[in-house]
Nucleic acid binder design. Structure first.
Lengths: 184, 184
DNA sequence: GTCTATAAAATGATAGAC
DNA sequence: GTCTATCATTTTATAGAC
């Protein structure tokens, strides 16, 4: 065999993730990616139709990783506590993988669905609702907004963790409270 | 004069804003921008040192516009009501100028300061605090997160305005409540 | 499945004339 | 202050040999 396989889809996605992680999304070109894999850029097209497909695979990977991290953190407890723990993992993932997180949220596909599904479940449990879509929307908005503002430096010097905790508690209490008040 | 002035900094920024507004940020190149202005690309460098400077000017423009819109909306009332009205204008601006809003939030400079200052003031008034930085952070996080998630389609079919209102109310009530509770 | 070679197209930016 | 001309670079993607 003159040209034995040197790479595969998984290796490509893994290497792409590492590349994006260290050098940012802008550094992800077919050339540089191929270089790290020890192949030529044209070889990548045997595994992915185009660059966009690689980005989508990366976003899916990020969505699954963040959802899994939240899931296992939430599984240890339940109710409000489970939601808090999951939220903390969400923040941790975004802080540890800023470029991948950014890519995930920039992808307009429905690739972030696992995150939505999980948040919907956790928020509903925390607010004692059957399906609190409005609450989940508000909570996710707060989470993502906090991450995005902090990552871009709009919040000035990094806010303390207490700032995040206070916001989280206020929102959850507000969501539960409004619900009870409306029901009562 | 063989080469009379054909453009100036203001015209460049105005045209750039219109271009980004209609065709997106990716369409903003020195060539296309110059074309719309009826000059050559190289002429732009007499007014701005590079492309980044034009983007910064656009972001500043967006920050001022959104802050002014919020300001005047808030001025009509005060307290919680003023904050709600301002938040609504924030959403309106982002909806009407998605690309400019996106550019503003993607700019990591301290160009968004006018927005922060205003929100800090309005949130503090709404929660009866002298300087509620944690509250302002939480509120801005919620606002921006909501806009970003919606713009990227992560929330599925557009959430109703009620969804936004409920989140806003829950957050403000939660922030005020937590404060009183902590104080008491 | 990988390679070489290349197409085809953008882009930001500069030099120097007028 | 604007022009022409051009540089220098980068990018995605394809054709065809092996």
């Amino acid at each position: 065999m003159p040209f034995p396989p040197k790479t595969n889809s998984d290796a490509i996605v893994n290497t792409a993730a590492a590349l994006v992680q260290t050098d940012g999304l802008a550094a992800l070109s077919m050339r540089t990616l191929a270089l790290r894999l020890g192949v030529r850029a044209s070889s990548l097209y045997r595994h992915f139709p185009d660059r966009a497909a690689i980005e989508t695979a990366l976003a899916e990977r990020a969505a699954n990783q963040i959802a899994m991290a939240m899931e296992s953190a939430a599984a240890e407890t339940d109710g409000e506590r489970a939601l808090f723990n999951a939220a903390r993992k969400y923040l941790d993932y975004a802080a540890s993988n800023p470029a991948l997180y950014s890519l995930l949220m920039a992808t307009n596909d429905s690739v972030s669905r696992p995150v939505w599904e999980l948040l919907l479940r956790l928020v509903s449990q925390a607010t004692n609702s059957p399906l609190d879509e409005a609450g989940a929307t508000a909570f996710w908005s707060f989470l993502h907004g906090f991450v995005a503002l902090e990552q871009k430096g709009h919040l000035g010097p990094s806010p303390s963790k207490l700032t995040f905790v206070r916001g989280t508690q206020a929102l959850v209490r507000g969501l539960s409270g409004a619900k009870s008040a409306a029901t009562t």
